[in-house]
Amino acid sequence: MSGPFLIIERENAIATVTLNRPSERNAISRPEYIEEIRNFCADATRDPSLKAVIVTGAGSAFCAGGNVKDMRDKAGIFEGSPYTLRNRYRDGIQQIPLALYELEVPTIAAINGPAIGAGLDLACMCDVRIASQGALFAESFVKLGIVPGDGGAWLLPRIVGNARAALMTLTGDAIDTTTALDYGLISQVVPPENLLATARAVAQRIAANPGHALRLTKRLLREGQDMKLGPLLELSAAYQALAHHTADHEEAVNAFLEKRSPRFGNR
């Protein structure tokens, strides 16, 4: 299938990004796919008018991870010596979690079908995860005799906890939406026909807030995963000082006191 891997649609302050290889179950199987994701993240961070991003998949799958046929054939991103493969992982698919980690805009994964291997990890890189009924989730690398190579061993325990992450990763077994909801892996399950509308409604609630506050808050949440309380409080104080001297903060306070809806201008 030709054309871009990412279909990007913009509606005001919200971008919907669709992985567009349904015939391949949206597997991340080519260097150019990775480059598209990196470029989008960089462009989104540079765009102060963008306040929320929805990530979903075309067709029946969210993302099937890597291309298993390419693994068998030692082709594509799986071609080469162990040394070559190590560098290809570092310079290739591992750039996705780094790019999404640095993306300042809040992200919502609208999981329309199976999220398997690197596909589950991609969903875990997003800030919010909403799934349609019938979606499946598997950290299934071990079933193919490999390990989570794109950050899953760091991402998944921070979302579902060490014990559940170990169970998912060491068995490689898939879980359904009921279990995923119980684990805290997803926040909501909706009928398939309501998935994007639900994700957009959440994105609109996010985008109703000042852009600078959203970006600084997301950064605090991410940095707080690995910081002690003292350094996080220092960072919070610095970010708060910046936020207090923005026009949107003044507008929010005035609107609250005047009992009216705020009119933010990303200032």
Rank of each mutant, 00 (worst) to 15 (best):
M1L: 08
M1T: 15
P4T: 15
L6Q: 10
I7L: 11
E9N: 12
R10C: 02
N12W: 02
N12S: 09
A13C: 10
A13Q: 09
I14M: 06
A15L: 05
T18I: 15
A27V: 04
E32D: 10
E32K: 07
R46P: 00
D47F: 03
A52E: 05
T56M: 06
A58N: 09
S60K: 07
A61R: 02
F62A: 10
G66L: 08
K69W: 08
R72I: 15
D73G: 06
I77E: 05
S81E: 06
D91L: 14
Q94S: 12
L100E: 10
L103M: 15
I108S: 12
G113S: 02
G119D: 06
D121V: 12
D121A: 15
D121Q: 13
C124K: 05
I130F: 12
A131P: 12
F137E: 01
F141M: 07
V142F: 05
P148W: 04
P148D: 11
D150L: 09
L155N: 05
M168Q: 11
L170S: 10
T171L: 01
G172S: 01
G172T: 08
A174S: 14
D176E: 12
T177C: 15
V190C: 09
P191Q: 02
P192E: 06
P192F: 04
T198H: 06
R200M: 10
A203F: 03
P210M: 04
P210C: 07
P210T: 02
R215N: 08
R215K: 14
T217G: 14
G224I: 00
K228W: 02
L229H: 08
L232C: 08
L233M: 08
A237P: 08
A238P: 08
Q240A: 08
Q240Y: 03
A241T: 11
L242M: 06
A243M: 12
A243I: 10
H244L: 13
V253E: 09
A255E: 12
F256C: 08
R260Q: 11
P262N: 00
F264T: 04
R267Y: 03
